[in-house]
Design a protein around this nucleic acid. Structure first.
Lengths: 173, 173
DNA sequence: GTAAGTTGCCTAATATAATTAGGTAACTCT
DNA sequence: AGAGTTACCTAATTATATTAGGCAACTTAC
């Protein structure tokens, strides 16, 4: 439903309408409207982590980087509402219990081939997270739709650039 | 008000309360709740563009890159609600009339020293946009707050890396 | 300096949403 | 068969968004 009408529009009353039940009945299942959004966010984070995990399995180096990045972007393009949900600001308690932790671990695992030592590895994880979420956020917001070249081309270029950057990261400091 | 209570919480009724007027009175000034958010977004985009423009003036190359990036990040950290507003999804008509256009022009101007030809320049503009908005989005969402090193250190590292990347961009394709 | 228009607010009314409280029928488990 | 649980219900309250129509103060033109 979030993918169809948008994450922000996914409210208790709309959800109840879709289920064919009274709105009040939902309150046995979720605490309130905010809790509903939190649950969608947690679900989406797990789902995305599963996708990324499957995509990266058995790959290494640049192959793994591309698989990771594409899994992330494809999820966002296929499930815009759920992707928006993954950016929902969770409470600190919800955040630590979320699959956000898995995402960070997967990013670290993927970087293994690049032989980065701390603190470079942490910087690299943060850079990748920034680029992926930033690019996909701008793309789904329509930021690249009114100009050539198309988004896919830039995406490929960026992944090439990130790969070559990661190979030489410590040297750039 | 958006900075204090959050952009999403900035509604006609809350705004009317703060002004000490009836909610209905606001409807002489904004068309509806969505229009209010659009106006905040447009205002914030202008303000951010002014800041970036002032920061970049008289600088070139890496100096300009850092000034641009810091202006962007500082605005977000100082005005979280307004920064969130700059990410509000505008209608296509509002988008083309917004300062979003100025942002793209400033990015291109800043890249002048890096001697990028098309389509590399467009790719570079998009990469910078992705990194800046992605990093600041994650930072303000608390994504970096529970681990060392601190966000500032990663930010500096990322800007160094971007500078060296831009110098050699066409070669990485 | 007054008349006409404009501005910025008001009250009143309606529709939609979120939320709480308390109840009931069906299902599950002993 | 009875106790507990589940998943819904109705009813009521509150908050919010929105529209319509009115009024008083201010501005501007003659």
């Amino acid at each position: 439903m979030a993918d169809e009408i948008g994450f922000e529009q996914t409210t208790p009353s709309k959800l109840a309408q879709r289920f064919g039940v009274r709105t009040a009945s939902l309150y046995s299942h979720v605490k309130n409207a905010h809790d509903l959004k939190t649950k969608i966010a947690l679900l989406s984070l797990e789902e995305l982590a599963d996708r990324v995990s499957a995509a990266v399995a058995g790959r290494a180096g640049k192959d793994a980087l591309i698989a990771f990045a594409d899994a992330y972007r494809d999820y966002a393009l296929e499930h815009p509402g759920r992707f928006t949900a993954t950016q929902f600001r969770l409470s600190p308690e919800a955040a630590v219990a979320s699959a956000g932790v898995r995402h960070a671990q997967m990013a670290r695992a993927m970087l293994r081939q690049y032989d980065l030592t701390e603190p470079h590895q942490t910087h690299a994880v943060r850079l990748l997270g920034s680029v992926f979420s930033g690019f996909v956020g701008l793309e789904t917001a329509g930021g690249f739709s009114h100009s050539a070249p198309d988004a896919q081309e830039t995406w490929t270029e960026i992944l090439n650039a990130l790969d070559s950057l990661l190979r030489t990261w410590p040297a750039t400091s």
